[in-house]
Design a protein around this nucleic acid. Structure first.
Lengths: 339, 339
DNA sequence: GTGAAAGCGCTAACAG
DNA sequence: CTGTTAGCGCTTTCAC
C-alpha cells in the first residue's frame, strides 16, 4: 500500500461517517444516493459528519456491487486528422453531461487492437465508442459475447449489423463532384487516404463512382495517409509525369491543404483559378482565410450526440437492435474550387 | 442489473475457473498475475479453463483490494489550441506504455473545476495530469489532503511548490525577440492570450520584459483568446487606428496564423517583407508551407514523457518532494519573420 | 425510515 | 507451491 505513507491517516469510509454521525453504515449509503428514503434529520447528521471527516464515496466499490462502471471507452487513433480532436472533445462533453466518464485509448497500429480490447473487457466499461478503428465481424462478435455495446463512427462492418453513426458520404461527395463538373472541370485526379482505412476507401469509391456517372471513367488515384505531408507528396508525384489536372478530389481536408500548398508553392499553380481542390470534413483549419476550402463539413456536434445517444440507449436496454444513423454534411462553397 | 438480460449467462468469475480447473480460487488469481509462484501445471490448467469459459479478470475488484486504480486523470480544456491534441496523444501513449489508463476530463469553464475534482476523488485515480487548467494553492492543498499526486503542464502555483513540467518560456521568447530586434524591427505589438490564462500571462510578461530590455517600452498589447479568429480580430482592431507595426509577437501559433491571414488577406501586408509575425508552440500547422511560422517549438514528446515520469515517481513514492522540470524549446527560423 | 447482514470479484497474508 | 481465510467499501434485500 504505497500510498499509506506514515503520517497519512487511513482513508475514511462510510463506516467512519456512520460512527461519527451515530447512524448505521447503510444510512450513510442511502444519504449519498439521491431519491432514497432517508429522513432529513438523518441526512443532515450524515452530511455533517461526512464533511467533518472529508468523506467521499468510493466509486470503485460502488462499481463492483452495481456491476456498472459509469465509464465508457473511447478509442481514437490518428490525431493528424484534425477533425478528430474536435470530435473527441464533443463526445467527451456529451458523455460528461450524462455523468459518464471517458476512458481514453489510443490505437496507433491495428495489431494492438487485441490487447486494447483485453483492457476494455477487464475494465468493465459500460460501452465503447470507436472513433477511428477498423473492426471486423470477429471483433464485433466479441463485443456481443461480453454483452457490451459499441458504436462505430463513420464505419461499418460487412455482413454484420452494428451500431454506427455516419456522415452521409455519398450525398456530400456527390455535391462536391457535381459542383466541380458544373464548373467545367474535365481532368480529375483523386488523392485518397490509405487503403487500410475504411473511411478512405469509402470516400474514394464514392468519388470514382460519381465521376463515372458523369462520364469520367478511369480517374487516376494517388494514395496518401490523410496527412498534410502526404497531400503535398501525392500532388508532387503526379506533377512529375503529368500536367496539372483541372480538379483534385481529396479524401480529407488535411490532404487538400497539403495539395494546395504544394500546387501554389512549388508548381506556381493558382488555386482555384487554374485548378480546383476539394476536401472533406470541414475541420477548423479548412476555414482559415489562407485556404477557405470547398469541402463538406461533418456535423460533428450532432454526430457526437447521436453516437452517445445510441450508446446510452444500448446500455440501458441491451436488447435494442443495432442502429445505423446517417447525418447529412453541409456543403461549404469555399474558395478552393472555381465557382 | 440492466445488463443481466434474459438469455445472457452470468458473468464468469475466478471461482468458476477454479471449479473447472479443479484448483482453488486463489490459484486462479495467482496464475493471472505475472511473477507469482505457480507451478506450470497449475497455470496451464487454469489458462485452459479460463479460455474455455471466456474468463477475464475483473479490474474493478482488483482496484478495490489493491487500493490502486491503475488510472490517471488527464484534464484538458481548450482544443482550439492545436498543440494540445498532440500533447494529449503523447501523454496517453506514455501512460499506456506503463500500463496506466487515462480517464479524460474536459474543462470548459473554470467554475466546473470543483465538480471535476469531486469526480477525481471518488474515482480513486492514482494521479492527475493537468494539461490546461488553472489551479490555485487551495486546489493543490486538496490534492495533498487526498494524497494524490498531480503534475501541471506549463503552469505554476504562486507560493506553493508543485510538480510541474514547463517549456522554458523565457529562453524561447528571448530568442524570438532577439531575432526580431536584430533584424531592425522597431515598432512592436503583442497579441496576447486571455488574461485569465496563466500561460498567456507568462508569455506576455516575458515578451514585454525582454522588449523593454532592448529599449522598447510601453509596447501595445491586444488581448485575444488563443484562437485563430481572435488573432484576426486583434490585428484588425489594431489596424483601425494605427498603421502596420514592424513586428507582431503572438502568444501562440494559432493567433499568429490568424494575424498573418488578416494582414495578408485584408490589409494587403506582405509578411514577412513588410511585417514580421512570431508565434509560440510549434504545432503541426505552423510548419505548413502557407505559413512556415517563425516560432518556438515545445518539445512535446519530452515534455509528455517528463510529466508522466514525474507522476509515476510520485505514485510509487508519495514522499518525493515536488519537482519542477524545465525544458528548452527549439527556435524555428521560419518565414514569417524577416531574416 | 432504519439497521443487520450478505455479498460484488478479487488479492494477500497465513498455514500447510 | 497450494488452499483457506479475511477482507477492500459499498449497495441492497430484508426484517423491524
Amino acid at each position: 500500500m504505497a500510498r499509506q505513507n506514515p503520517g497519512s491517516k487511513k482513508r475514511v469510509t462510510s463506516y467512519d461517517v456512520a460512527r461519527v454521525a451515530g447512524v448505521s453504515q447503510s444510512a450513510v449509503s442511502r444519504a449519498f444516493r439521491p431519491g432514497l428514503s432517508v429522513s432529513d434529520k438523518t441526512r443532515t447528521k450524515v452530511m455533517k459528519a461526512a464533511k467533518k471527516l472529508g468523506y467521499k464515496p468510493n466509486a470503485i466499490a460502488r462499481m463492483l456491487i452495481t456491476q456498472r462502471s459509469g465509464m465508457v471507452a473511447v478509442i481514437i487513433s490518428s490525431i493528424s486528422n484534425l477533425v478528430y480532436p474536435e470530435l473527441l472533445s464533443r463526445v467527451t462533453d456529451q458523455l460528461s453531461a450524462r455523468g459518464v466518464r471517458v476512458l481514453l485509448f489510443t490505437l496507433d497500429h491495428s495489431d494492438q487492437l487485441e490487447e486494447l480490447l483485453e483492457q476494455v473487457w477487464t475494465f468493465q466499461v459500460d460501452g465503447v465508442i470507436a472513433l477511428t478503428a477498423h473492426f471486423d465481424h470477429r471483433d464485433i462478435a466479441q463485443f456481443e459475447e461480453h454483452n457490451i455495446p459499441v458504436v462505430l463512427y463513420n464505419r461499418q462492418v460487412p455482413d454484420h449489423p452494428v451500431n454506427t453513426v455516419c456522415v452521409d458520404h455519398s450525398q456530400g461527395i456527390r455535391q462536391l463532384i457535381d459542383l466541380l463538373v458544373e464548373n467545367g472541370n474535365k481532368r480529375f485526379i483523386v488523392l485518397s487516404g490509405p487503403p487500410d482505412s475504411d473511411v478512405a476507401n469509402e470516400r474514394r469509391r464514392i468519388a470514382l463512382e460519381h465521376l463515372a456517372e458523369h462520364g469520367f471513367a478511369d480517374v487516376p488515384v494517388l494514395y496518401g495517409d490523410f496527412s498534410y505531408q502526404s497531400g503535398k507528396d501525392c500532388f508532387a508525384e503526379w506533377m512529375q509525369d503529368h500536367g496539372a489536372p483541372d480538379a483534385v478530389v481529396c479524401s480529407n481536408d488535411t490532404m487538400a491543404i497539403g495539395c494546395i500548398d504544394q500546387a501554389r508553392g512549388t508548381h506556381g499553380i493558382d488555386v482555384p483559378e487554374q485548378m480546383s481542390v476539394v476536401g472533406f470534413d470541414g475541420m477548423y483549419a479548412a476555414f482559415w482565410t489562407g485556404y477557405e476550402l470547398t469541402t463538406v463539413r461533418q456535423p460533428v456536434n450532432q454526430m457526437a450526440k447521436a453516437a452517445v445517444d445510441i450508446l446510452m440507449e444500448r446500455i440501458e436496454n441491451p436488447d435494442a437492435p443495432p442502429e445505423k444513423r446517417v447525418l447529412a454534411g453541409t456543403l461549404i462553397r469555399g474558395k478552393s474550387a472555381r465557382a
